[in-house]
Computed example of a mutant assay.
Amino acid sequence: MSESTTLAPEVTEALRAVIEQAGIEADVDLVARILATGVGLGLDGADRLDLKITSAALTEMRAAFTLFMPFEGVPKVTIFGSARTRPDDAQYRAAADVAAALAARGWMVVTGAGPGIMQAAAEGAGPDHSLGVSIRLPFEEKPNAVVAAAARNVAMKYFFTRKLMLVKESQGFVCVPGGFGTLDELFELLTLQQTGKADPTPIVLLDGPDGTFWQGLRRFADEQLIPSGVISPDDLDRVLLTDSVERAAAEITGFWRNYDSLRWVGKRLVLRLRAEPADAEVEALNERFAGLLVQGRIERRGALRAEREDGDRVELPRLVMHFNRFKVGDLHHLIRAVNALASAPGVETAPPRPAPGI
């Protein structure tokens, strides 16, 4: 908030009194900041359209948070794809099959709740494993019957709030061929991963049997994007292109085979693992990934002080390093190497809900 619209002390106290009267006890400082921002908009003289956008966005986010809250401990995969794909299309079947495979492994499937690929994924997962975040459009007014039947849908006015929820809540993503909307969602994912604004997660580009849609994207990257220098040669290495439902499901769950989560503590990156690596394995990681460090070595450690103070997954073994933040887009290489260690668990387990930096 600008200095000219800083709230008077008596207004700030009044807002805190409202919070106390409402019975709010957790994260009072953040709730106070939200209220203060709203009052500040009024003091700034924001026009009615700006206020309507702000109000609608907050209202939609609250509704979405409420929808997802009961399933906080359940791993989720978001499936993107065209609303125009017909039920007799091989891509429709692929989306339904991968959703069914992941639901059978305990995952919930999140979609845009519309027709086409979104309906296919919801059908494959079934109503008990489906969540929907729909968009209010003049030609797409209702969520598909699967998510509507279980009343597990929230409707959004704005694409940006919808996209936030489709990305924020999931630990894996499957993109089936689609148009502008699907490509927009995919490129948003890739941008968040490349820039480190979201923690690494598995991304699968799934086509129908013998499909070539995503191969066209690969060719475009190889022939245009990489030679022109606008992306790095290995930027698409984090993505699996496949027409196999089995490989797609294995990519989503296998990403969490040994890797659990990460956290930055000051300048140090902490990778939390499910199994402690052996000395020889840590040495091999140091030899392979020395170029990603700004100093020192990758070290096997217990929970750091900040993690202990927060009770942040303190029971897990860790690898701690001074990782080069300018190379954060390469983190997925290290995570895959950690998952491939001989000490990694043989059984895949569900990941925690990450804390994305969106």
Rank of each mutant, 00 (worst) to 15 (best):
T5F: 09
T6W: 01
A8Y: 09
R16K: 12
R16F: 11
D27E: 13
A32D: 14
A36Y: 00
V39E: 05
L51T: 04
L51P: 01
I53K: 11
F65N: 10
T66I: 06
M69L: 12
D88M: 11
D89S: 15
R93L: 13
A94N: 08
M108K: 13
G116W: 00
M118S: 11
A121E: 03
A125H: 09
S134W: 06
A149H: 11
F159Q: 01
K163T: 00
L166K: 03
V167R: 03
V167T: 14
V167F: 11
K168E: 08
C175W: 01
D184R: 00
F187W: 15
L189N: 13
A198K: 06
T201D: 00
G208C: 08
P209H: 09
V230I: 15
S232G: 13
P233R: 12
D235K: 00
A249I: 07
A249L: 09
T253G: 03
R272H: 09
L273F: 13
A280C: 06
V282P: 06
V294F: 02
Q295I: 00
E299G: 06
E307K: 06
L319G: 07
M321W: 02
M321S: 08
H322Q: 09
L331P: 03
G346L: 13
A350D: 04
A350T: 10
P354K: 06
A355N: 05
G357C: 07
